[in-house]
Amino acid sequence: MGNGCQAAVLAGGAGIDADTFRSAMRQLAGGICAITVGRGDERTGLTSTSVSSLSAEPPALVFCINKTASSWPILQARRAFAVNVLPAGHRSVADRFSGRNGVKGLDRYEGARWSELVTGTPVLLDALAVLDCEVEDLIERFGSAVVIGRVVAARVRGEDAEPEALTYWRGAYSVIRR
């Protein structure tokens, strides 16, 4: 292929290898969200770029979680979570919730201001948007789970909100400006 593209196909129609798949998926830019789960001392969470709208009537969304994630058992037990859409100034929150530098559990909440909405799950006070959800369904496949959440409360920052969103593209943070 003379246009700078790479092609990789495994023999016998088995699809592509994992490294090629990861490389292809890194071309898909995604908004960064801190998914919060748990209450009190069991609070934890994760960083996700896989949040997507499922339905407006009723309001529902989906995201994916690896079943080896520390947040998985808490999500299964509590059956509630919040999606916190991160503004550009919250790279440190994204890093903590991704577990960078070994940060786990309650320590992921340090350095930011939190409150609660309907489910009691922590929500980031200065997120661009917050969607407070109850788990509608968990679909387990390939070592991960697709989480379907019914949105029970939401908060969206107004025009005074930071005009830049934090995104992830090609393995690094990027910023989208208004």
Results as ranks from 00 to 15, higher is better:
A154T: 04
D126K: 08
S23K: 04
G38H: 07
R79K: 15
L75P: 02
W114P: 11
A88Q: 15
P122W: 06
G102V: 05
E42T: 13
S70Y: 09
V156H: 03
S52D: 02
R91M: 13
N66G: 00
T44K: 02
Q27A: 11
A153G: 12
L106G: 10
R43T: 12
G30C: 04
E110H: 00
R150S: 12
L124T: 11
S50T: 15
Y109S: 11
D137V: 15
V130M: 08
R108P: 03
I65Q: 03
Y109G: 11
R91T: 15
I35T: 14
V85A: 12
T119F: 15
T36Y: 09
S144Y: 04
V152S: 05
R96W: 01
P58W: 02
A69R: 09
S144F: 05
S23Y: 04
G30F: 04
R108A: 03
S92K: 15
H90L: 07
G31S: 13
S115F: 06
V123P: 05
L106H: 04
R141G: 02
E134P: 08
G143C: 01
S71F: 02
G158L: 01
V62T: 13
D95T: 10
A129I: 01
S52L: 10
P122K: 07
L125C: 12
E159F: 00
V146E: 14
L61W: 05
D95E: 11
D137P: 15
N66P: 00
C64W: 03
G105R: 09
T119M: 12
A80L: 01
S92W: 14
I148E: 12
E42K: 08
R39W: 02
R78H: 15
R157S: 00
T47I: 11
L106M: 10
A94D: 10
I65D: 04
R155L: 01
S92G: 14
I32H: 01
A24T: 02
L131S: 05
S50D: 12
E116L: 09
R108N: 04
E134G: 13
A60E: 13
G40P: 08
L86F: 07
A153I: 04
T68Y: 03
S71C: 09
V135I: 14
P58M: 08
R141F: 08
L86C: 08
G143I: 02
R157A: 00
R96I: 10
K67C: 02
T47S: 13
S70E: 08
F142Q: 12
S144L: 01
D107E: 06
R113C: 11
